[in-house]
């Protein structure tokens, strides 16, 4: 489980470094390169909350 938690946390770190360097298509009014970056910030939250859920460390301690 520890290993799985590590993997789910590392995905957004790596994903956020992939830059899609283009203006079009615009999404939510933003150039694609900016939208893509924001997407990964939100995904980081999602992935870390999942990591939190499966990380056994959170059950050991009170």
């Amino acid at each position: 489980m520890k290993k799985l938690a590590f993997v789910t946390s590392i995905i957004p770190a790596l994903g956020s470094l992939v830059v899609i360097n283009r203006v079009e298509p615009y999404v939510l009014g933003m150039p694609f390169v900016l939208f893509w970056a924001i997407c990964w910030v939100c995904l980081t939250s999602l992935f870390l909350i999942i990591t939190n859920k499966i990380d056994p460390a959170n059950r050991e301690e009170e």
Partner: peptide, 22 residues
């Protein structure tokens, strides 16, 4: 334009925080 704009976001902060700070 875009380079400093994207640099304002840093997903590494949080992944490092998750494993290192506890």
């Amino acid at each position: 334009g875009i380079p400093p704009a994207l640099y304002a976001f840093n997903c590494f902060y949080f992944v490092i925080a998750y494993w290192l700070l506890p």
